Simulated assay, not measured.
Amino acid sequence: MTRKDPIGPEFYVPLAVSEKFYDVTFYLAAALSIVVLIIDKASQPKLYEAVQATFVVTVVGFFVTGIVIKTYFATRAHSSRFADFVSNAFSVPLVPSPSEGYYNTPGRDPFMRIGASVLENTLFTRSILARMLRFERARICVYVLVWLWAAIYRAADLELLAIAAQVLFSEQLLSRWVRMEWLRSRVERLYDDLFALIQSSSDTRSKEFRARVIEALIRYETSKAQAALSLSSHVFNKLNPELSLRWLSVCSQLGIAPATDPAA
């Protein structure tokens, strides 16, 4: 089957670029905040002023980039993906260039396709988050241990310790890790609930099944929106072959045929 995903290059690539710039400005601002404390203002006034000015510009850039990401890049990317998702479920083109072969969703009933798509999405999302969390947990452990050591060590400079605390408890480190753990937990529960729903439902056209499928879709989308996280495309590409095979196994267990199956 031909695979085409115009949503990714058009909307998610700019989002990824802006998020990388956001990360760079964050770490640059953190580094400059320490450099400002180290430079002797009396003996090197010009260097101090240059670093201070660069620090201010970096902080402003960090703030503006964060606002633009949340109100523009992330919003339009997620809205376009959701519109493409609904287009696939109901076979109605809600976007100018719908994706082809992106969703491995079976069945002709739109609500069954929605349920299968959400189930597939939760399978991929929880697996990608689990792999991403390996690095995040290790990084947080290192930062926390270093910060605790500096806090206990009496000779540590209090100003440097305060800056380290701001970095550690910022949105980019501790908050990001907590949101990743929370989203992984939510998605895992949703996957189990949706798997049990499809497995136990004898009539997929009943009002109860359709209501629960829509409720699962809302839970998934609102959880992603609340977490405000982008999944790693590198991890996705690395795990995609393995997860695609696992999805085929899940379809077999539930008695549904994936879209790549000629019988679908």
Rank of each mutant, 00 (worst) to 15 (best):
L123W: 03
F55E: 04
L183Y: 03
P262C: 08
A228P: 01
L148V: 14
P96D: 13
F90Q: 09
I128A: 03
V95C: 01
P98H: 04
D192Q: 10
R139D: 13
R186P: 04
I69Q: 02
L15Q: 11
K41F: 13
N240S: 15
D157F: 02
I7S: 09
V92Y: 00
M112S: 08
S97W: 01
A89L: 00
A263L: 11
V118F: 07
G255I: 02
I256S: 03
V213R: 02
S80F: 00
E120M: 15
S232E: 07
A196I: 04
A74R: 12
H78T: 07
R139E: 12
M1H: 09
L133I: 04
V57A: 13
P98A: 09
S91G: 02
Y153V: 00
M1L: 07
R210S: 03
L94H: 02
I218Q: 07
V187H: 01
I38Y: 13
V167R: 05
F82T: 11
Y191M: 01
T58Y: 02
N88R: 05
R134T: 13
A130H: 14
A164T: 05
R3M: 09
R186H: 11
D109W: 00
L37F: 10
L28G: 07
Q226E: 15
R154K: 09
R139M: 13
V51C: 05
H234R: 14
N240E: 14
A53M: 06
K207T: 07
I7A: 09
N104E: 11
R205W: 00
V178R: 14
P98K: 07
S18W: 10
R179H: 08
D157Y: 04
L161M: 11
A196F: 07
W247K: 09
V51E: 10
G8A: 05
R76Q: 06
A53H: 06
Y22A: 02
T54K: 03
R154A: 14
A116C: 08
G61K: 06
V56L: 14
W182Q: 09
V64R: 05
E49S: 14
S200C: 01
L161A: 09
I39H: 12
E181R: 12
K70A: 13
V235G: 02
A263W: 04
S223W: 06
R154D: 08
Y153M: 09
V92A: 04
A263D: 10
S244D: 12
